[in-house]
Nucleic acid binder design. Structure first.
Lengths: 158, 158
DNA sequence: CCCCTGGCGCAATATCATTGCAGGACCCCA
DNA sequence: TGGGGTCCTGCAATGATATTGCGCCAGGGG
């Protein structure tokens, strides 16, 4: 997990990242075949990518609806102050709720963009009002997703 | 990939989902150990979760900054019409750009929320103006992430 | 021209994935 | 109450994979 220098990735590394970003559970043998390498050096490259923090982990992509999370929505939250303590207090609040899946501080001051899931409309309303009534919260704009046209894993490579 | 009935997940299935959501590359033997099952039934359960579409896939989580994507930002795009053809044209545009990683249509009409990555500020500006100048685009509000307090994979389970 | 470094492939071995099979729990219905 | 399904488990065998050790080759300096 170092954080400094030139990662110095060659085209084979980028190819590996592309493949694992697409299918993180591919066997090493299959991966090696796709990047035209034998298994051992391929595995060594993967390990190096993991150790340097370029690959941060692997995650199963679970269907929210199948687990009863019918609604995914975003919330743009404005706070009444940009004081450090207030920002941090809100972050603690947000990261504590399990329904909050992402919490991004937005440049420009005092705003956060959240991604949340809810079991149904009532639950969504409840979450929204819990947000609205949270300390220091000035306004909450909810953005409910009705269709996701693209949800690409990770980043473009190459 | 069925789409209908009761998934009928028991606590072991939920435990499996929790573990794989956390570490999608865990070996089946390790997973079985964690959920207190022997390897074969554990693997059968995982396969069933994959086949029913509850597990949609596995992805390596690649560090954007390590690959030169210094900036992650969101864009809230308003279109001048909610006509089907215009919405679809915008979706095609958005999903075509590699820098657009997510594209969500927002309830309320004519708005999209995008997540994008950019190599640097100049690149971000270029993307923003390309969005602003795209056909039917009325307004673009960019929300630049300066800190991500939480970025949880998937959904809460349990 | 030789040495050092780095990365590769081969081959051996430890682990893991996958399949076939037998047994137990549960349920329905006679 | 008891036979026959159904479903799911664990054990054991077998084929694949992951992992390690090692020798080889290419490139960059002295």
């Amino acid at each position: 997990m170092n954080r400094e220098p030139e990662p110095d990735l060659d085209s084979v590394d980028l190819h590996i990242l592309t493949e694992l970003q697409q299918d993180g559970r591919m066997t090493n043998v299959e991966l090696a075949r796709r990047v035209n390498l034998s298994a051992p050096p391929c595995l060594r490259r993967v390990r190096r990518l993991e150790e340097t923090g370029i690959i941060r982990g692997y995650h199963a992509d679970v269907d929210p609806v199948a687990l009863g999370w019918e609604i995914t929505f975003f919330a743009l939250v404005g706070l009444e102050s940009q004081k450090q303590a207030i920002l941090e207090a809100f972050e603690v609040l947000a990261t504590t709720w399990p329904e909050v899946r992402e919490c991004h501080m937005i440049r420009g001051g005092g705003d956060f963009l959240l991604r949340l899931v809810a079991r149904d409309t009532a639950h969504e309303n409840e979450l929204t009002s819990r947000l609205t009534n949270a300390p220091s919260v000035l306004r909450v704009q909810t953005l409910q997703t009705i269709r996701t046209a693209k949800d690409a894993a990770g980043v473009p490579i190459g």
